[in-house]
Amino acid sequence: MSTALSQKLDAVSGNASGGHRVNPGELDLSHKVILYLDGISVSFDGFKALNDLSLTIDAGELRAIIGPNGAGKTTMMDVITGKTRPDSGTAFFGQSLDLTRMNEPEIAHAGIGRKFQKPTIFEQLTVFENLELAMKTDKRVWKSLFAQLASDERDRVADTLQRIRLVDEADRLAGLLSHGQKQWLEIGMLLMQEPRLLLLDEPVAGMTDEETERTAELFVSLAGKHSLVVVEHDMAFVEALGGKVTVLHEGAVLAEGDLATVQNDARVIEVYLGR
């Protein structure tokens, strides 16, 4: 059943150039844009976490988002994944999916995966089981009651284990992993979901330099097939990603462009260094 769905998704994206029919509930990438945020505002007790934020992410793009603390990066991710409802504004996934009307599991099924700032994995389950649960499949109760891993599913878990370099840890409890390994496991769980769009909140926090480098390589290799939005403070990492950079400040976009342009922008310098 999972293959059927991914074929459909492929068909939709493959159709992009020709005339297209939009089926409700399916990702429509006909304008080559995977995420539209338009005029999003969110306030908590009068504090404007997001203030008329507008942003678009192209299909296959690798975008880094930077900004000082409190700039609204995490709130933006909350809005995209359905955790927070915006007070105003629209959020679309592709042309047809209105994210402000979907709940978290529906958004996950539509193809948005999220990695939290603090690694959240299932500590009492093994690494293998963490990946198994994340795997894209029918996730209703009835199916889980009788679910058995088919050999191709087992292979997919094995592939991901290799990719995140946790093959030797497969049967260990996830809670026993190092911080960096937990980050990798969570990224692996995202990959198992086969999302079209990955949201990664400070994915290299707590990683060694070598791990950070490998993570950047992994992300660059994922771009194209997937779209990635990475929130990060580590400038060396952002540079290694090599994509477009968006600077958030006080809940709105302050500047956008490649890293060098952004770094020379007077307003960005002001926000980071001024006062």
Binding site: E104, A108, H109, R114, F122, A134, K136, K139, M189
Partner: peptide
């Protein structure tokens, strides 16, 4: 919350 974000 993680369970929810992976689609259950």
């Amino acid at each position: 919350s993680r369970v929810r974000f992976i689609g259950y």
